[in-house]
Design a protein around this nucleic acid. Sequence first.
DNA 1: ATACAAATAGTAATAATTACTATTTAAAAA
DNA 2: TTTTTAAATAGTAATTATTACTATTTGTAT
Lengths: 134, 134
Amino acid sequence: MRYSVQREKILEFVTKSSEHPTADIVYKNLRREMPNLSLGTVYRNLTSLARIGKIKKITVANGSDHYDKTLENHYHILCNKCKKLYDIYFNDTVDIEKVSDLEKSINNENGCKISNIDIMFYGICNKCLSKERM
Amino acid sequence: MRYSVQREKILEFVTKSSEHPTADIVYKNLRREMPNLSLGTVYRNLTSLARIGKIKKITVANGSDHYDKTLENHYHILCNKCKKLYDIYFNDTVDIEKVSDLEKSINNENGCKISNIDIMFYGICNKCLSKERM
DNA sequence: ATACAAATAGTAATAATTACTATTTAAAAA
DNA sequence: TTTTTAAATAGTAATTATTACTATTTGTAT
């Protein structure tokens, strides 16, 4: 893959972001410093950066794809109120082990070959929960 | 919710299907006996039938939503080759228990309220695997 | 039988993403 | 260091899945 400033900036934006930006967010932000940046370029590069494993693509129900700088195995929650995506942590390590054990141990009787498992949590984030209480 | 022939036929199609039809599949099939059926009607009714719990909506990465007649807790695999959705069964009941235990036991430290967990398997189905071997 | 709100058909609009093509550019070759 | 070449981009058009809109139709309560 040949170098391009656009790809470098796109990767930089995702890796510096504390959130999980969508293509559109990346586009809107980078446009400020690169007014000629094209949305197609953002999509194409996010896709190829995910393919080569520099970032991770996260698909959510009824919404845009998000991109994640964190490559280690972890999970996400999509807030049904603010529609933002958050990393999810468990207070009991057993829980996260249960999830990753599951991914390893799956063995099915249909004879189909499982290549990966998507696990996505839905609910309401702490910020929106505290707003509700006010 | 007021009765309509359209909704009855849409529900019937999903419940009689051995597959997991998308809105478009339901539409194309029912059009044969109901030439004036509108795609919007199919979407609206699939959504409301899922809301009242008569069928289940299944969202997959990068593709149309599918609908499922089976209401009990179970999981699906999307074949990356033929793009069809299949029910997934495990030869060890421990596996399926691991999954549903997980759904119950999740307790997180972010203080967010988890309302549901989506678990989707991706891979290659047995039919496509046997084609590859030939 | 009448009235009324809910549902439909048909069409238009939207949102997310991919495809297309002329132009630009990184980097290999001369 | 210029020339060449293929990969990448910008800008636009097309596509896919889904929702919104509105005039008309249809269940069902009165």
